[in-house]
Design a protein around this nucleic acid. Structure first.
Length: 527
DNA sequence: AGCCTTTGACCAGCG
DNA sequence: TCGCTGGTCAAAGGC
């Protein structure tokens, strides 16, 4: 890793040229045929193309890239990063996951990607956390297969299905997976996997300090925990454009993003199978409700889905958004500095002052989400799977954590929130004190004890189990405010959507300066 | 009929 | 004080 700068540079628009999922993942792996080795050989070109894009794009510190020979070197470097990363992951969560799930999840070299994309895309300036593109946190959480894999083997999770050959045995790194397995894996498409890794284990996800809007320069990545999520798409990937999504908290307080910020929760379907799904990001205040950031993102995505990527009324609007809350759009404006129009949403619940700002790309993909305020009410009856029985899934935690808290302090929104102060404040208190614990939460939804605990523990990624159960990001700082954003899709109706769009990666940006947290997700549309 | 989105106008904060 | 910008309001229209 050249460092954050490079990463940042890489973050630009990254559109995987690869037409097929397999190719895509292969590239990620480094090679189709040589799947077993981390080293990149022939596949490197592809890989590079995939993640790095044109050599020029890799400019950040590698002007030479353009040079053929140089390019090779550069590639090697990138590859090296990638390899390294993979190694890390293998050794870390991923490995555990792989062991449990029985397969390896191909991982994106988020580092590289970030750098490249960043260079290309000014919008993404300080990626902190990356999740395989196309994957919104919500998506990851929601995905039946997603966490499930981590959790327990079940048809639902797809663990078994993934590797008919018993590849599940491959507890070891995926790199060693037989090609066949890989193929099956990718081709079968029903698989999706991800891995969250603490920074130490992987460089994929990490939290970088920085301003959401400002390019992150050199951040001590190491200082932040990182998470990697790999997703196996169910369908072939198409290189549709990927729009970066950012979720950022308005909170101006410091983020202790890492540990508490992210929470994964596992749900069980009616059958008792672990569905794992929801991942929530709590940036801060939680609501008693669980409107987890992820959930929120889900909304966003839901919106996208609803309108086909256009602002969907559905997402934010009348139907409960994926996050489980109902949102009403009350304004839209072209913000100066932002190439995309910003939409303003309010929670439709009476007395609830939670708001969120969403920026969408032309394609309708969410590029940025900012949550403010805390829900003072339980989620509306969920339509979603969670409602079905899953329970807490969604965890309120995130929500609790998120926005609300922040709102108070958040100068920008503070004013807005003031009106609600009462409800919010109470909420906050709870949150603050409890952090993500849904303690405040009125309903069952609100609080997922387990979630809360984890969140508070601050070591979300401590163990695979934990991850399975839930992963949450939250700010320690109570003060904060919070905002939490979530990106994801609905479980049910969303599936189709989920299939269509693959997560390329998610970026979470805790902003050192602004204290904002940004989660940026890139999506790839699948055929 | 109700709710939501759209969109132009208005308001407030800031330099 | 003025202009810019972001955020919100509210009427109109659609589903």
């Amino acid at each position: 890793m050249a460092g954050i700068d490079d990463n940042v540079a890489i973050i630009g628009d990254w559109v995987p040229p690869s037409p097929s999922p397999r190719a895509f993942f292969s590239a990620m792996l480094g090679d189709d045929s040589n799947s077993s080795t981390i080293t990149e050989p022939p596949g490197e070109n592809r890989t590079k193309g995939l993640f790095l894009g044109q050599p020029e794009q890799m400019t950040t510190g590698n002007a030479e890239t353009k040079d053929g020979a140089r390019t090779s070197g550069a590639q090697l470097t990138e590859l090296g990063s990638f390899s390294e990363q993979k190694s890390n992951s293998r050794g870390g969560l991923v490995e555990r996951m792989a062991a449990r799930a029985g397969f390896n999840a191909p991982r994106l070299n988020t580092e590289s990607i970030r750098s490249a994309e960043t260079s290309l895309n000014p919008e993404i300036r300080s990626p902190c956390l990356t999740i395989p593109s196309g994957l919104s946190p919500t998506t990851l959480l929601e995905s039946p297969v997603f966490l499930s894999n981590l959790a327990q083997p079940s048809p639902t999770t797809g663990k078994f299905s993934f590797f008919p050959n018993g590849s599940s045995k491959n507890s070891t790194a995926g790199s060693k997976l037989p090609d066949k397995s890989k193929e099956t894996f990718f081709e079968d498409i029903n698989s999706s996997s991800f891995a969250f890794k603490p920074m130490g284990e992987s460089g994929s996800l990490f939290f970088l300090g920085g301003t959401s809007k400002v390019a992150s320069a050199n951040f001590p990545q190491q200082s932040f925990p990182s998470i990697d999520v790999s997703v196996h798409s169910e369908n072939a990937l198409q290189s549709h454009d990927v729009a970066p999504t950012k979720v950022q908290s308005e909170s101006r307080n410091s983020l202790h993003f890492p540990a508490e910020f992210f929470k994964l929760t596992t749900e069980k379907d009616n059958g008792g199978n672990t569905v794992a799904d929801q991942r929530t990001f709590d940036t801060v205040g939680g609501n008693a409700e669980h409107s987890s950031p992820l959930d929120e993102q889900q909304d966003e995505e839901g919106d996208q889905r609803a309108s086909g990527d256009s602002m969907a009324a559905g997402g934010a609007g009348g139907t409960p958004s994926e996050d489980g809350y109902n949102w009403r759009k009350y304004g839209q404006k072209q913000v100066k500095g932002s190439e995309y129009p910003r939409s303003y949403y309010k929670c439709t619940h009476p007395n609830c002052s939670v708001k969120k700002k969403v920026e969408r790309s032309l394609e309708g993909h969410i590029t940025e989400i900012i949550y403010k305020g805390t829900h003072i009410h339980p989620k509306p009856l969920p339509n979603r799977r969670s409602a079905v029985g899953s329970l807490d899934t969604q965890l309120d935690i995130p929500e609790q954590v998120g926005p609300q808290i922040g709102s108070v302090n958040d100068s920008a929104w503070a004013g807005t929130q003031k009106g609600n102060a009462a409800g919010t404040s109470d909420w906050r208190r709870d949150n603050v004190e409890v952090t993500s614990s849904a303690s405040g939460g009125p309903g069952p939804e609100f609080g997922n004890p387990s979630s809360s605990v984890q969140a508070q523990s601050g070591t979300p990624f401590e163990s695979a189990d934990a991850i399975d159960a839930s992963s949450t990001f939250s700010n320690d700082e109570d003060d904060d405010r919070a905002t939490h954003g979530s990106v994801g899709y609905d479980g049910e109706g969303e599936e189709s959507e989920s299939k269509r769009r693959l997560p390329l990666h998610l970026f979470v940006f805790p902003c050192m300066t602004s204290h904002d947290i940004i989660i940026s997700t890139r999506f790839t549309d699948v055929v």
